[in-house]
Design a binder for these strands. Structure first.
Lengths: 140, 140
DNA sequence: ATTTGTGCAAATCGTTTGCATCTGA
DNA sequence: TCAGATGCAAACGATTTGCACAAAT
């Protein structure tokens, strides 16, 4: 289910964030088009194209605030960039080596079985599965 | 150094790398103490303390060469740093949030079931599982 | 009016690169 | 010898930060 635009303000308020112009506009970009994976640079470009005036610093701030407040999820694959996932449900990812792309795996797939006990005094906060894929070896 | 390094030399040769002084000494640091996870900065420090003369650039080069040749494995958890694992077998990791530590999970644990088909034209190169853990919420 | 957020540029941090100099086979 | 390695410093790219200004409540 999609987060309707009417409720962007509420969504932000619920996340204890003031619905400022930038945050609302970025939220709209992020949450009105289905699940996505964006990098800061990405979103910055997109905002520019959409005529949304925001600085890169604010993009970073906003992405982190959204993440800290559960609106986004940061995913770390092996590129040097951080990607943010608008889908905060439990699901995993494909990572395309070479093009450094991240693709959602349909949820329900890649269940992890037989987890060991976490170290003493620790609790599991999250389990991430990244399936690295590469182009099939070509034998033309 | 008294202990013959013949085995290290051979390991490097087998990996198609010239057994230079730096590479042999770094290999010794890396592979003579059981499984470890090091960052470039880490290893640099350790080398310095051990009186091994290497530049940071060479550390990076060496880590990557070792990785490219199957002696090491790069792991990416969500910190901004890259860690290298001396255990190249199939196994997964705990990541301690807060202290950014990486811990090996005994191999055989964390089997991933029900993997979806990779995208068309792609083949799976590796499956990584990272179990993020944090200190238990204290309820005292 | 206060508090909180934003923009900009400079600063940081991990990592990479260019290039002159060495070194192992 | 001489291709391949190394060291250094400068270059880099992503991200963060300091601080004056602007906007939300």
């Amino acid at each position: 289910m999609q987060k309707p635009k009417k409720n962007l303000d509420d969504m932000l308020r619920a996340a204890k964030l003031r619905p400022t112009r930038q945050r609302v506009e970025l939220a709209e970009l992020l949450f009105s088009k289905g699940d996505r994976h964006v990098s800061a640079e990405n979103l910055y470009e997109e905002a520019r194209k959409a005529g949304v005036a925001v600085s890169l610093a604010t993009i970073y701030n906003t992405l982190h605030q959204f993440t800290d407040n559960g609106l986004l999820r940061a995913i770390s694959v092996d590129s040097t960039k951080t990607y943010f996932d608008t889908n905060t449900d439990n699901h995993h990812h494909f990572f395309i080596e070479g093009s450094n792309k991240v693709i959602d795996m349909p949820s329900g797939f890649a269940r992890v079985e037989n987890l060991p006990e976490p170290p003493k005094g620790m609790e599991i906060s999250r389990v991430d599965v990244v399936v690295r894929v590469r182009e099939n070896a070509k034998r033309s």
